[in-house]
Write a protein that binds this DNA or RNA. Sequence first.
DNA 1: ATAGCCGTTGCAAAATATGCAACGTGAGGA
DNA 2: TCCTCACGTTGCATATTTTGCAACGGCTAT
Lengths: 249, 249
Amino acid sequence: MSQSLDRALTLVGELATGPKTLEELAGVVDVHKSTALRLLRTLESHRFVQREGVHHYRLGTALFDLANRALEERDVRRSSESALRELNALTGYTVHLASYEAGEVIYIDKYDSTHPMRMYSRVGRRAPLHCTAVAKVLLADLPEAKRREVAASMEYPRLTANTITEPAAYLAELERVRERGYALDNSEHEDFIHCVGAPIRGSRGEVVAAVSVSVPKVLLDFEGLVALVPSLLATARAASIECGFTPRD
Amino acid sequence: MSQSLDRALTLVGELATGPKTLEELAGVVDVHKSTALRLLRTLESHRFVQREGVHHYRLGTALFDLANRALEERDVRRSSESALRELNALTGYTVHLASYEAGEVIYIDKYDSTHPMRMYSRVGRRAPLHCTAVAKVLLADLPEAKRREVAASMEYPRLTANTITEPAAYLAELERVRERGYALDNSEHEDFIHCVGAPIRGSRGEVVAAVSVSVPKVLLDFEGLVALVPSLLATARAASIECGFTPRD
DNA sequence: ATAGCCGTTGCAAAATATGCAACGTGAGGA
DNA sequence: TCCTCACGTTGCATATTTTGCAACGGCTAT
């Protein structure tokens, strides 16, 4: 669709084979030397390629950063798959996997309820920050300054009678989540649904994702929901270990 | 230098922060949605980005391939640095590190002789395939079919009285190199220089690079050169271990 | 000293990317 | 169930951007 970009990406792919000279690269995409030069310069400014000596180009260091970041996300999803599937099979309820990225909480995986009554949600969608268990889990792990900043700038639309609508109350809620190690959504998002969520941790103990179980109130009361916590924490711990987390004891 | 490419790379960098929607991305580089869409499509066709759900883009899988390949090369050079520096200090002669890439043998690092007499060479430069110790080491590890193919298509310019000028003789030489675990260049490249080279192996035992010592004949006769082999092999083994190689015993 | 190779630059032509506006689709609310 | 809204998608005309060319300059090898 975009010719110059297409050519540039082809060049990068070609460099994966090993270092190449300008003219070799120009030949690969069948353009003039000067054209290849300009593309490579742009690639170089973004550290996608770098010069090796005078006559050769090689892949640059930006690729490491990018690959590592992409890999982390991907690994959370893949690594926690079996644990989450098991929790889904055990409880029969909808299980969500979410992560915090750039000010948003996004559902990155979902295991549908086996019960006839399903809830609406979709992978890739943003979760409201103030009224979901996964968001509470993820935001609770942010440094305090960031937490305050986010709490101050986010919206608090009242969705149910239980919805938290004040920054102060929300920050206090995050503190509770931090302390007890899991989060509740006591019908704060939708009247007929309540959830419990727990953190999945990475190798350095940081929270990389959140797992939650969502249950229709008609199927399980609040007491029953809280009774799911041990299973949820076991699942979160199993997923954490898969993500490289080492339990303290 | 290239606007569209620059924008596209900026988008990729932005995606490192986490999944984004089309409009968010368009805002980052300050272009129209449709423009961003076309760039993303091209990036997607090269697997640099991929869609997450319907509304989000994330980094794609091509980055893994690229990063891994780039990392391998880079690691060889960095990992073997201390071992090679030590060999250079021990012998005082010029030490080269070379790797095989896309039909060529390229010097990827060099430690100059401490003796007043230095040899000419340069990092990034191609090494002749038929008359250098490093090339013999690297080609000796190729599968037989590939070895034959390369031997048949390469050039054999006579550079000295000892230069191998026939494919058959060269293939036989590679076989010897394979068996004894190191290669010699008995003044086959330059009259007054001879070399010994050995393989550096990676985690799966494959040859990832070659290390060589180059000595002016006036400083050391052939017998003296061969006497360097134990040190060379020790260096190659040390560098191999740094590259993830596990010795058998 | 000289020839050849490769990367680099300025410029003019034109191909290409861009923005616009309208369309299509799917979700959410009444 | 209908309607609205949000978002991604497409065709097209404009002009910006990219491209090829040709000449230059540095470096190596002879």
